[in-house]
Design a protein around this nucleic acid. Structure first.
Length: 271
DNA sequence: ATAGCAACCTGAGGGC
DNA sequence: TGCCCTCAGGTTGCTA
């Protein structure tokens, strides 16, 4: 389910329920995720969660002793529930709090991750080399232009690369490039400063709007309280291959780039 | 260094 | 009904 907006919606949803709460128990029903769930995760019991933050698509629950790192992969969801709620298929992990509430991770495909790290999280190999956060000022107008010089990779592959900028997944990459009028196949190194300025602004806008609307609900994504996100109705190209462009009525084309579907309008978008 | 893509999984949907 | 194929929000870590 998750691109950056969905993870941020999740962070906001769980935060009031877990911040300053004490962990009473951790329940691992299936440790086989992207990597095995950290065996020493029960060290978390008795700890107080002092910060609920996000870096890229990683959720970070910080305590005095260490940080719980959660990633939702392709199909993960986190619900806030009474701790005795009946367990469903693919409910792999619970973080139980003394308040009687639990965070429950459900992830059919198990591409997600649950890691208890006692070292400095920002130094961890998974997080150390990530690019800037797209919604912060560090992702500024000059950044993409400078970073892309001499790069031949297609622009869509470029903006989806975590080492370039984090959090831009397949849905929002398609949407942002459509709105910026740039073909997803355009070589990153050939795009002008001016168009990068525009693209940067659009990426920020698209992500911010999606967060405000509670994310995009496709198959199984819901907010932590079970409500759907409403950004799906704002999608202009994602999932619309073969349908008409909402601007010019040209038929939208669909291709595959690096194994991912790219949808674009051959009229509105240029190299 | 960089590009392409297999791999990790389950489930849904389409064609036959 | 069943089988086989393709596809899906991500990302690491191979192989060239």
């Amino acid at each position: 389910m998750p691109e950056l907006p969905e993870v941020e919606v999740c962070r906001k949803g769980i935060s009031p329920h877990v911040l300053n709460q004490t962990v009473s128990d951790v329940i691992v029903r299936n440790a086989k995720m992207r990597w095995p769930i950290t065996p020493n995760i029960d060290e978390m019991c008795g700890e107080i969660i002092i910060e609920v933050s996000r870096r890229a698509k990683y959720l970070l629950l910080k305590t005095a002793k260490g940080t719980l790192v959660l990633h939702l992969g392709m199909s993960g969801t986190i619900r806030v529930i009474p701790k005795d709620t009946i367990v469903a298929k693919h409910d792999h992990f619970d973080l139980v709090l003394t308040s009687g509430v639990a965070l429950r991770l459900n992830d059919p495909r198990r591409f997600g991750a649950v890691l208890w790290l006692t070292e400095d999280v920002s130094e961890h190999p998974l997080l150390a080399r990530l690019g800037p956060e797209p919604l912060l000022d560090e992702f500024d107008k000059g950044y993409l232009f400078k970073k892309s010089r001499k790069k031949t990779v297609p622009i869509k592959t470029f903006i989806m690369n975590n080492h370039v900028v984090v959090g831009v997944g397949n849905i929002y990459a398609n949407e942002a490039l459509f709105q910026a009028g740039i073909l997803p196949t355009a070589p990153a190194g050939k795009i002008s400063q001016k168009r990068y300025n525009n693209l940067t602004e659009i990426i920020k806008q698209v992500l911010a709007k999606a967060i405000n609307q509670g994310g995009t609900t496709l198959k199984d994504f819901t907010q932590t309280d079970g409500r759907p996100g409403y950004f799906a109705q704002s999608l202009q190209v994602y999932g619309r291959g073969g349908e008409k462009c909402l601007i010019c009525e040209t038929r939208l084309e669909e291709i595959r780039q690096s194994g991912r579907a790219s949808v674009f309008c051959p009229t509105c978008q240029k190299n």
